[in-house]
Every structure is written in structure tokens, then in C-alpha cells.
Design a protein around this nucleic acid. Structure first.
Length: 308
DNA sequence: AACAAGAGCAACCGCGTATGC
DNA sequence: TGCATACGCGGTTGCTCTTGT
């Protein structure tokens, strides 16, 4: 990258990628820059980022423009807190694919790989740190699988139950969240997340059924069961939202949220004797167990501790 | 009220891959 | 086929905001 800061020494990323000599801007984008980029893309479309940057009169690299557009300016980018459903999805998909952020992001409409990556690094890794174990360790993965994810499911279901009283209410959704609970599914045991329906970049309906067990989670060795659990997309709901249903034929494709979780989470025999450092959990100022102020992190209560 | 530490997030960097000539 | 260019991904950095002292 031939930017202000330094040179490009990448063999493949040659100077053409970055070589826009002169006074390239770096750092935070200004409102004016954003405006120019949005206007230019609205007129000319995306792609050819270097020429786009020049055409828009931006003193930025094409790379920078692309990143700004994809991560911030795109109209379908969702801002705000990661919802419970999204947390669950991230945990599940990460256990399946690891740090394949963009792949994970494909299943969280409106979320960017950068956002998911940041979420993982700040929230999930924080918990691992509090547990004094590596985020990639079996110990922590099991903790996620047997404690965190079921807890998320419980909370999602609780939210769904709460909304059954007022079906129009959203589920754990920030103000900008377009998700809503379909009336027809409330009270059926399924929590159905309606499509986001943003710019046609939609993934259809996602469902949380009440049949999750750690054993059929993708974190288990034969994790292909995860993909096999994908339920068909509801055309009815698609019609309801008047948006085309994504008919992705990619074998890796998973409808967002289509992970089945059980409300009856029973730990495998001896699991809790495998060295989970619950003392450390309690010791870390109860942040891990009791949450740290952020309700999205508040997974545990005293009953859980005693249960454990 | 002032300062320090930590958390969260936007942006940058380097590299691998895809595409076009 | 080889090279140049463009794109996209994952890792990292550094700025800003929040919280604690």
C-alpha cells in the first residue's frame, strides 16, 4: 500500500493496488467524504474501487473506500447491539468455521465481518480471559456449548414468550432492528425471526426450534449435522414481507438462526469435572457469571452457579 | 474535577486469490 | 503462460469513549 504512511512490500499487492501517489488521506472519514462516496456509488455503482476513489474525488485508496462502504455506508448495514439470536449464531458458526469472519457474516444479514470480528474479540475473548482459558481450547468451547449457548436459547425463548402477550413487539432488537415475531408462530414453540428485508439482501426466515442438544450442535465432531438441520424457508413469510427468498444452493449455506437448540440442556456425565475453572469464574468479580452490566453478557445467575 | 485504565470500534495493513491483458 | 492489477479476507493498530479511582 502506497499510502501516506509507508510502502507496499507485498508481492501480490503491487503498487497499482495502492499507488495513488500524493496526498492520500488516512484516518477517520469526514461527513463530506462519506457524502461523496455515497453519491458516486449511487450514480455509478460499486466496484473498481481505485478508479471509483479517483472519480469521486476522494483522496483515499480504493481499499479504504471499499472498506468504508462495506462496513459503514452501505444502506443495509445494521448498527447497534448484537442481538441474542445473532450472538447465538456467531457462537455456533464460529465453532464450525473458526475465524472465517466474512463467511460468518454472510449468515448475519446486515452485519459486517469487521463487526463480528470485533464482537468476538471484545466479548467472547473477554469471557475466555476471565475463565483463564484459551478461546480456542476445548474447555472454553465446551463452556460455550453447554452453558452459554443454552442460556442464550433460554433468553431468546423467554423473549419470545414475553412477546406472545404483545405479538407486535420485537425480540431483543435495537431500535434499528427490523426483526419481528410473526403472529402465526408465537406460542407454537418456535421463535421465528422475520427477514430483515434490506435491499434484497435477505436470507429468509430463520427459526429456533426447541430441539437443541450439544450433541447435535456443530461443535461436535461430525458437525455436518448442522447443515442438515436447515429447515426449508418459509415462502409464506417471504410473501408476508414481500421479498424474494434466498435460494442459496451453496452446500455451506445456512439460514441465519437455523440452529436447533434444546430447552433441556443436560450436561454430559462428568463434563463439569473436566477442569472448568468456576472458581475463576466466580472470582472475576462475578462478571462472567453475573454479567458485566451489559445485558447481552449477563448469562448467569446464582441458580446457575448452584446448579453447576 | 482530573486522570488513568480498559473497552469498543473504525480503519489500516499484509497477504492470498481472482481476473484481465 | 506470465505479469499486472484488483479484490477480499483475517489480523492488527490506534483513536475515542466510558468507567473507575
Amino acid at each position: 500500500m502506497m499510502d501516506v504512511k509507508g510502502s507496499s512490500n507485498s508481492s501480490s499487492t503491487t503498487q497499482s493496488d495502492e499507488e495513488m501517489t500524493g496526498d492520500l488521506r488516512r484516518g477517520p472519514w469526514t461527513v463530506e467524504e462519506d457524502f461523496n462516496l455515497i453519491n458516486y456509488i449511487a450514480t455509478h455503482g460499486e466496484g473498481r474501487w481505485n478508479s471509483l476513489a479517483r472519480g469521486a474525488g476522494l483522496k483515499r485508496t480504493g481499499k479504504s473506500c471499499r472498506l468504508r462502504w462495506l462496513n459503514y455506508l452501505r444502506p443495509d448495514v445494521r448498527r447497534g447491539n448484537i442481538t441474542l439470536e445473532e450472538q447465538l449464531m456467531i457462537l455456533e458458526l464460529h465453532s464450525r468455521w473458526g475465524n472465517r469472519w466474512s463467511k460468518i457474516a454472510q449468515h448475519l444479514p446486515g452485519r459486517t465481518d469487521n463487526e463480528i470480528k470485533n464482537y468476538w474479540r471484545t466479548r467472547v475473548q473477554k469471557h475466555a480471559k476471565q475463565l483463564k482459558c484459551d478461546v480456542n481450547s476445548k474447555q472454553f468451547k465446551d463452556t460455550m456449548r453447554y452453558l452459554w449457548m443454552p442460556r442464550l436459547v433460554e433468553r431468546i425463548q423467554a423473549a419470545a414468550s414475553a412477546t406472545s402477550a404483545s405479538p407486535a413487539a420485537t425480540v431483543s432488537a435495537p431500535a434499528t432492528d427490523h426483526r419481528s415475531v410473526s403472529n402465526s408462530d408465537v406460542g407454537t414453540g418456535n421463535l421465528v425471526m422475520a427477514p430483515h428485508g434490506v435491499n434484497g439482501n435477505d436470507f429468509g426466515v430463520s427459526q429456533f426450534t426447541q430441539s437443541y442438544t450439544p450433541e447435535n450442535s456443530s461443535t461436535v465432531a461430525s458437525s455436518d449435522s448442522f447443515a442438515a438441520q436447515v429447515s426449508p424457508v418459509s415462502d409464506l413469510t417471504a410473501d408476508y414481507n414481500n421479498i424474494p427468498v434466498n435460494r442459496n444452493t451453496n452446500p455451506d449455506y445456512i439460514q441465519p438462526g437455523q440452529v436447533s437448540y434444546s430447552e433441556s440442556m443436560i450436561s454430559p456425565p462428568g463434563f463439569f469435572n473436566h477442569g472448568l475453572d468456576f472458581q475463576a469464574m466466580e472470582h472475576s468479580n462475578n462478571q462472567w457469571l453475573m454479567g458485566s452490566g451489559d445485558t447481552s453478557d449477563n448469562m448467569w445467575n446464582l441458580e446457575d452457579i448452584w446448579f453447576i
